[in-house]
Amino acid sequence: MGFLSGLLGLDAGKATTNAASKNKQLLTEFRGRGNSIINTGEQKSQGSLNKAIAGYNPYVTAGKNATNMYSNAIGLNGAAGNTAATDAFQAGPGYQFQLDQGTQAALRGASAAGMLNSGNTLTALAGYGQGLANQEYGGWLDRLQGVSSQGLQAVGGQGNALSNLASLYQNTAGDRLGLESSVVQGRMGVNNQRAQGQEANAGAKSSLFGNLLGGGIKLATGGLF
Rank of each mutant, 00 (worst) to 15 (best):
N171E: 10
Y169E: 11
V147P: 05
Q153M: 06
A161F: 03
Q158C: 08
L141H: 02
G151R: 01
G151I: 03
S163R: 10
Q150I: 15
N171Y: 05
S167C: 06
L152E: 12
A161K: 03
W140T: 00
L152F: 11
L165C: 01
W140Q: 00
G157L: 12
Y169V: 13
G159C: 11
Y169P: 07
G157I: 09
S148Y: 01
L141K: 03
A154N: 09
L152P: 06
A161P: 06
G157N: 12
Q158F: 02
Y169H: 12
Q170L: 12
A154C: 04
R143N: 08
Q153G: 15
Q170C: 07
S149E: 04
Q150D: 14
N164A: 15
S167A: 13
Q170W: 09
L141Y: 00
A154G: 09
G146A: 07
L165P: 01
Q158D: 03
W140P: 00
S149L: 08
Q158G: 05
A154M: 12
L141M: 02
N160C: 11
G159H: 11
Q145L: 15
L162Y: 05
L165D: 04
L168Y: 00
Q145S: 15
A154P: 05
Q150E: 09
Q170D: 14
L162T: 06
G156M: 05
G156F: 03
Q145R: 14
G146F: 01
S148C: 09
Q170K: 11
L165A: 06
V147T: 06
L144S: 00
A166S: 13
N164K: 08
R143W: 02
S148T: 13
N171G: 11
A166E: 05
L162E: 06
N160Y: 10
S167W: 09
Q170Y: 11
S149N: 10
L165T: 07
Q170T: 08
G146N: 04
Y169I: 14
G151E: 02
S163G: 12
L165W: 04
Q170I: 14
S163E: 09
G159T: 13
N171H: 08
